[in-house]
């Protein structure tokens, strides 16, 4: 019953909330500013971290195992190995490449003279067939390589050895470090916003006391403050969204020619909308919860 009346009065409460923001001038501006700064920080660091993550994943994805088969066996025999390779734990895909295709690849890499030279091997191909194997998790690449080496008719399985191993490990460290950093920053930022809101509401303790004196129900008191929190969050997320929108599209169009495909930035859309959504949700959510909790303290009997 009390709640229904609050819903019915929602337009009035919205008006009150806006009025409060307007009439509290400096206090509101400083809350909005705090939200803006923290969201800006979160979004810029977050966007960078996400892109670095993307890059580390695409680097890892480009890591493959090159499996050379014994050159004595025929393509048909070599192809029989496919199910065995695919059965190994951690193997994502295995692509067969026949002797002929291997020679094509080799010739492709040569200059004019070399091309002619290797073309002469076409009749009596000295190369073996091969597999290119992708793994699910770059961490497993060494183990998978080892297992493939033990299979019959495998001449050699290589993955780049120690250097790949070191690369994978450092990529993992970058990712984890970035994630911890962003999460930590977000928590600090949210505390900052909640604290600012708490300050603005504590300064209105008398106001709440007066509302209670004239017989305002708890929800009637609470709702405008909660809406105010939401609006402050909303207003505070405006500038960060604009910054991300223009900043990221600009960065992306600048970087698209500079960076190799493997290190390319995430497509701006819908990425920007996702970031904006998260920022609005963070701003409003913290505003809402922050004011709810702060008001509750003054509504006890």
């Amino acid at each position: 019953m009390e709640f229904i009346s609050c819903i019915r009065n929602l337009p009035k409460h919205c008006k009150t909330a806006f009025q409060n923001i307007w009439r509290n001038g400096v206090m509101s501006v400083s809350s909005i500013f705090a939200v803006t700064i923290t969201l800006l920080l979160i979004s810029v660091i977050g966007v960078i971290a996400i892109n670095i993550q993307d890059m580390t994943y695409s680097i890892e994805d480009s890591l493959t195992i090159y499996v050379q088969m014994d050159r004595e066996i025929s393509d048909e025999e070599a192809q029989k190995l496919l199910p065995e390779i695919e059965a190994i734990d951690g193997v994502k895909t295995a692509t067969f490449s026949s002797k002929e295709e291997e020679l094509d690849k080799l010739i492709e890499m040569q200059d004019e003279d070399g091309k002619a030279l290797f073309e002469s091997y076409r009749e009596n191909n000295p190369l073996g067939a091969a597999y290119v194997v992708e793994v699910n998790d770059a961490q497993q690449i060494d183990a998978v390589t080892e297992q493939i080496s033990t299979l019959d008719h495998v001449n050699q399985a290589t993955s780049g050895g120690e250097s790949t191993h070191a690369l994978v490990n450092s990529l993992e460290t970058i990712r984890n470090g970035g994630a911890i950093f962003v999460v930590g920053l977000t928590i600090i930022a949210l505390f900052m916003i909640a604290n600012t809101i708490k300050m603005t509401i504590t300064s209105r303790q008398t106001e709440i006391g007066i509302m209670r004196m004239v017989g305002a129900s708890n929800w009637y008191i609470r709702l405008p403050y909660m809406l105010e929190g939401i609006f402050i969050g909303l207003l505070g997320s405006l500038i960060p969204i604009l910054v991300i929108y223009f900043g990221y599209t600009w960065l992306y169009s600048g970087a698209v020619d500079l960076l190799p495909a493997m290190l390319s930035l995430r497509e701006p859309f819908p990425f920007i909308w996702q970031c904006s959504g998260i920022m609005v949700a963070l701003g409003c959510g913290v505003g809402l919860i922050g004011s709810f909790v702060s008001v509750r303290k003054f509504l006890k009997f």
């Binding site: 017989g215 129900s217 708890n218 009637y220």
Partner: peptide, 8 residues
């Protein structure tokens, strides 16, 4: 919960 209504 009813105190606000009483205060009226």
């Amino acid at each position: 919960r009813k105190v606000p209504y009483f205060r009226r």
